[in-house]
Design a protein around this nucleic acid. Structure first.
Lengths: 240, 240
DNA sequence: GGATGTGAAGTAGTTCACAGCC
DNA sequence: GGCTGTGAACTACTTCACATCC
């Protein structure tokens, strides 16, 4: 566990493509669950809130996997996306801070999936340390840290930098930071930020500045309005 | 409350700019709190994980507000960003689903800020309805819904579409959806998705495919490696 | 001197349009 | 006929480089 090695895989995928592939994957899996045996780029695009062309471009980056005239086979698509995103590689995750957010994450059946393995939980609150959450006993963060590849920070902003330092010293290579606080890490360590307040601000900006009655949100991912020929008439999706 | 009207404001800001302005704002506010009277684009960029040029371009979209040779005045910057993002306009927010995530959001001092006003809380669990959270008594979602501009969905995926329909029927114009589920809404309604699992997958993709020993994450927002001349030596920031 | 603001260049991503194959 | 895969065009965003002003 925890071995995430660099793989010489298909061509490098673009940032927008990487963020869309998990969405396609969920769509495709729901079709598999419904017993569908075919899906085409228009259908995926409609559900994901992007154009069919974008879907085809994204999928073309994974190699040739469709059939001209007949679309894609869902099971092949799902496995190829999983491979591209590295879901076959298992890696350890530690979660720091078990307030409501930390609890929500570890108890969710939708968070630690696709290769992620919960290694340990940490907090510094004596009322929390020692309790069991999601099958793990919460340990004191000031003690030894289990080896893991990714650390999830659910601590207050004021504790974010020190917590990150501690994780990096313990060998963590990637940090998912839910604290609204920029943190510094050594070169070679990746940080990805999730900031709820910013997401809400982005949404309201569009609400305030939406153009006209049906113009609405115009977004790199998810479009609605007269200038969007191929889109579903009713879905104004926007993924960040 | 709840009146979010379209304003004829400065030129339309680009999507990446919109997502960076809240970050700049937090940086600038922390400088104000520390009593600083000047800040320049290089300093903001270093803390935000972007180049100084990008910062200047973003800020130029808000009008001329710096002083050549001397940088920006933090208080002016903060108020202009607030204005551009519409923080002077107050709007109502309802939260649906008060599991751990919903509780984490409404109890956070960093979520409902910048014009957002919590209007009401809803759930359908009889054990939750009637309890008080963050100063509001949780109401039954199957009853009448308070007028609000934005709805925050913290419900299970299976309930997401029905909940969204209910919110839209009640007049909600924007939905922040934390359920990993695509939802359909009428034209004119905006949906913004936040999916924790996808954020984790993006992080691990970069971990798996990082190029070389110090190459690491290369991202539209936050760069590290040899090809990044101006960046801080130690911050590999990546906002989505 | 020093940092802003911005044309110009460069790069990345999306969309068009259609050839190719089933 | 239908849908994929992709060159070409287009659009969006970033970065360079420097004129401009304090």
């Amino acid at each position: 566990m925890g071995a995430v090695t660099t793989r010489l895989r298909a061509r490098k995928l673009s940032e927008p493509t990487i963020s869309r592939l998990p969405i396609y994957q969920r769509i495709v899996e729901s079709w598999i669950a419904r017993g569908e045996t075919r899906i085409d780029s228009r259908q995926i695009g409609e559900l994901a809130g992007v154009t069919a062309t974008t879907v085809r471009r994204d999928l073309a980056g994974l190699g040739t996997l469709g059939t001209r005239g007949a679309g894609y086979e869902p099971s092949l698509l799902a496995s190829r996306i999983a491979e591209a995103l590295g879901h076959d590689l298992h890696y350890g995750v530690v979660v720091v801070g078990l307030g409501n957010l930390g609890r929500a994450l570890v108890n969710s059946s939708n968070f630690l999936i696709r290769g992620a393995q919960l290694s340990a939980l940490y907090d510094i609150d004596p009322a929390v340390v020692g309790t069991e959450i999601a099958g793990h006993v919460v340990e004191d963060f000031r003690g030894a840290i289990a080896p893991a590849t990714v650390g999830v920070l659910c601590v207050p902003s004021s504790a974010a930098q020190a917590s990150a330092d501690h994780l990096v010293a313990a060998g963590v290579r990637g940090i998912l930071n839910f604290a609204p606080q920029v943190i510094s890490v050594p070169l070679g360590t990746a940080v990805h930020y999730v900031d709820f307040s910013i997401e809400l601000q982005i949404l309201t900006y569009h609400l305030n500045n939406g153009t006209g009655p049906l113009g609405g949100v115009l977004h790199s991912l998810g479009i609605a309005g007269p200038s969007a020929p191929n889109m579903a008439k009713n879905a104004e999706a926007a993924w960040h």
